[in-house]
Structures are given as structure tokens and as C-alpha cells.
């Protein structure tokens, strides 16, 4: 074991290497590592937040869907009710219309019947006069007996 100048040389080399490492190697590498660690931590936190947001959004969407379904069911229900109502209203209207038409028909029939009666009366009167004329021939003056005939017509 011979200790000699080599030791001094190695000692100097050691000191120089350590100083170089301390000044130019260690700080940038650890800085890069720490920066990346921070980035990764941020990314993980962001992804956690995103997952939570997604969960919330899904819950919200589910709730909205439920609400929409309930609304749709309500609308259908209302529509059914309205349908029944419309049918009822239509039925009522139809009845009223039918009654009106029936009434109008009756009224027309009545007036026509009255007219016919009137015509018949007049024709009967005419026929009666004509018959009487034929029977009595010319002896009967229509003008003199018209009051009697009118009375007869009014009695019909």
C-alpha cells in the first residue's frame, strides 16, 4: 500500500467533480423532476375533478330525464282528459243540433201542413161553390151567397 501524490490528485478531482455536480447537475435535474411531479399531481387532481363533474352531470341528467318523463306522462293524461271532454262536448252539441233540426223540421212540417190545409180549404170552398153552381145551375148568385160560403170556409 503506497500512499503518494495520486491521493492529492484524486482529492482535487473529487472536489472538482462534487462542486460541478452541485452547481450544474443536481439542481436542473431535480427541478425538472419536481416540475413534472407538480404537473402530474395537477393532472390527477383535474381528472378527479372531471370524474366528480361527470358524476354530477349524470345525476343531473337522470333527474332531468325523470322530470321529463313525469311531464310527458302528465301531458298524456291531460290529453286523454281533454279527449273525453271534447267527445262529451261534441255529443252535447250534436244533441242540441239534433233537437234544433228536429224542431225546425217539425216547424216546417207544421207550416206546410197549415198551408196545405189552407189550400185545401180554399179548394174545398171553390169545389163547394162549383158543386153548388152545378147543382143549383144558374139560379144562385155567387155574389149574394158569398157571405154564407165564407162562413162555411171559416168553419172548415
Amino acid at each position: 500500500m503506497n500512499i503518494n501524490m495520486t491521493l492529492i490528485g484524486e482529492l482535487i478531482a473529487f472536489v472538482v467533480f462534487v462542486i460541478f455536480c452541485m452547481k450544474f447537475v443536481w439542481p436542473p435535474i431535480t427541478a425538472a423532476i419536481e416540475a413534472r411531479q407538480a404537473t402530474i399531481a395537477d393532472g390527477l387532481a383535474a381528472s378527479d375533478r372531471a370524474a366528480k363533474d361527470l358524476e354530477l352531470a349524470q345525476e343531473k341528467a337522470t333527474a332531468q330525464l325523470k322530470e321529463a318523463k313525469a311531464q310527458a306522462a302528465g301531458i298524456v293524461e291531460a290529453a286523454k282528459k281533454r279527449e273525453v271532454q271534447i267527445i262529451e262536448e261534441a255529443a252535447v252539441k250534436a244533441h242540441a243540433e239534433k233537437d234544433k233540426i228536429l224542431a225546425a223540421g217539425h216547424a216546417e212540417i207544421d207550416t206546410e201542413r197549415n198551408q196545405a190545409k189552407e189550400e185545401l180549404r180554399q179548394q174545398v170552398a171553390i169545389l163547394a161553390v162549383a158543386g153548388a153552381e152545378r147543382i143549383l145551375e144558374r139560379s144562385i148568385d155567387a155574389a149574394v151567397h158569398s157571405d154564407i160560403l165564407d162562413k162555411l170556409v171559416a168553419e172548415l
Binding site: 503518494n4 501524490m5 478531482a13 467533480f17 436542473p28
Partner: peptide
Amino acid sequence: FMTVHWDTLGWSVFLGLVFLFIFRSVAVKA
């Protein structure tokens, strides 16, 4: 005492420089 082992000195300094060169080049481009 004035003896110098050139092989020891040479290889150790060379290997130390290899270490510093590799690590420094990474540190620069990190």
C-alpha cells in the same frame, strides 16, 4: 511520495468526466 499513478488518476478522471458529461447533458436537455 512524489509518485503518481497515472492509470488510477487517468481512469478515475475519465470515468468522473463520463459521469458528469452524461448527467450534465441530461440536465441541459431535461
